[in-house]
C-alpha cells in the first residue's frame, strides 16, 4: 500500500487517542499482521506503519475479506488485527459469524466509531453509533476505547481472544 499526499487534504485527527500509542499497543501485544481497508481515523497510523514497523499491513478491498484473512492468519499460528470503520463492521457480519465464530478464530477487530466529533457523527445518524449494539447482539466481546489511557485494553483483549478462541472487538471513540 502507498499513501499519496493530496494537496489541501487535512487529516482527521483526534487528540483523544494517539495513533502512535495504538501502534505501540498493537506491537506490544504481539500483533504481526494488520489487516485493513483504509479509513480516515487510521490515516496517521497507516502512514506510521508504512514508514517502518515490524507489523505487516495487508490491504483488503472489503472488510468482510479482512475477517476471513485474519482467521487464516490465526490458523497459521500468527496474531492479527483488523482495522475497520463502523461501516466495515456492518458489512462484515456474515464473515464474522460464518467464518470467525464458526472456525473459532482469535483476532482483534478495531472498530472506528462514527467519525471524529459528535458534530460529524450527527451528520450520519442512520449509520453511526450502532457498533456496540451490534456487537452485543452478535455476542462478540468488546471494549470501548475513549482515550490513549484505555489502550492497555488491547493487551487484555488479545489475551481474551486467544483464551476464548473468538474475536474480540475494540471500539475506538476517536
Amino acid at each position: 500500500m502507498r499513501v499519496i499526499d493530496i494537496p489541501g487534504h487535512v487529516p482527521e485527527v483526534s487528540d483523544k487517542i494517539s495513533s502512535e500509542a495504538v501502534r505501540q499497543a498493537l506491537e506490544e501485544s504481539g500483533i504481526e499482521y494488520l489487516v485493513t481497508l483504509p479509513e480516515s481515523p487510521y490515516e496517521q497510523l497507516l502512514r506510521d506503519l508504512l514508514q517502518g514497523s515490524r507489523m505487516k499491513v495487508v490491504q483488503v478491498a472489503r472488510e468482510s475479506q479482512g475477517m476471513a484473512v485474519c482467521c487464516g492468519i490465526t490458523y497459521g499460528g500468527k496474531r492479527s488485527a483488523l482495522l475497520c470503520s463502523y461501516k466495515g463492521l456492518y458489512n462484515s457480519i456474515d464473515s464474522l459469524l460464518g467464518v470467525a465464530l464458526r472456525t473459532q478464530s482469535s483476532f482483534l477487530v478495531l472498530v472506528s466509531e462514527a467519525g471524529v466529533s459528535p458534530e460529524r457523527a450527527a451528520l450520519d445518524p442512520e449509520r453511526g453509533r450502532h457498533s456496540v449494539a451490534l456487537l452485543q447482539a452478535l455476542k462478540i466481546p468488546y471494549y470501548e476505547v475513549w482515550t490513549t489511557d484505555d489502550l492497555n485494553l488491547i493487551r487484555k483483549a488479545m489475551a481474551e481472544t486467544e483464551g476464548n478462541t473468538q474475536p474480540v472487538a475494540l471500539v475506538l471513540r476517536w
Binding site: V58, A68, V69, C70, G76, D94, L97, V99
Partner: peptide
C-alpha cells in the same frame, strides 16, 4: 469449515501469508 460464500479464498490467503 468456511461457510460464508466467497471467503474460503480469503481465509486461504491469510493462511498462505502466515505459513
Amino acid at each position: 469449515s468456511v461457510r460464508t460464500m466467497g471467503e474460503c479464498s480469503t481465509f486461504g490467503l491469510g493462511l498462505a501469508l502466515a505459513r
